[in-house]
Design a binder for these strands. Structure first.
Length: 110
DNA sequence: ATTCTGACGTGGG
DNA sequence: CCCCACGCCAGAA
């Protein structure tokens, strides 16, 4: 069962470690895993993470701080609500003070 | 088996 | 600064 699924698992591990009120980007996770060019796969992994309630997918956005995946959630603005619920300011699907709430796995984990 | 698309990112014009 | 094209890899048609 561990062929490419391992990659997904790693993504989940990092995502789970995202602290409250913080966010990160797909590229940051991908880079941390060593697959910087496969940032897309991180997003794909998030899609699969839908089964894992332990994965705060709403805390993962693109490098722009834009809630690109908000349409994949149940509600229309569920993702934004979750983020705002954590103290993150979101406007027009865009995270405000992104630099402030950004969580870098390299800086915090490594 | 082939083609296209997609929760991204980077680079070039 | 804005727009376009490419790389990546996995899943769906």
């Amino acid at each position: 069962m561990e062929t490419s699924g391992n990659f997904f698992e790693k993504v989940y591990e990092v995502a789970k470690q995202i602290p409250f009120g913080r966010v990160t980007s797909y590229g940051a996770i991908a880079k941390y895993l060593g697959t910087a060019k496969s940032a897309r796969m991180v997003g794909w992994a998030m899609n699969a993470s839908h089964n894992n309630a332990d994965i705060p997918a709403h805390r993962v956005v693109n490098r722009n701080g834009l809630l690109t995946g908000k349409f994949h959630f149940d509600g229309t603005n569920l993702m934004q609500q979750l983020l705002e619920s954590e103290g993150i300011v979101v406007k027009e699907n865009q995270i405000q003070n992104f630099h402030t709430v950004f969580w870098d796995p390299f800086k915090e984990l490594d």
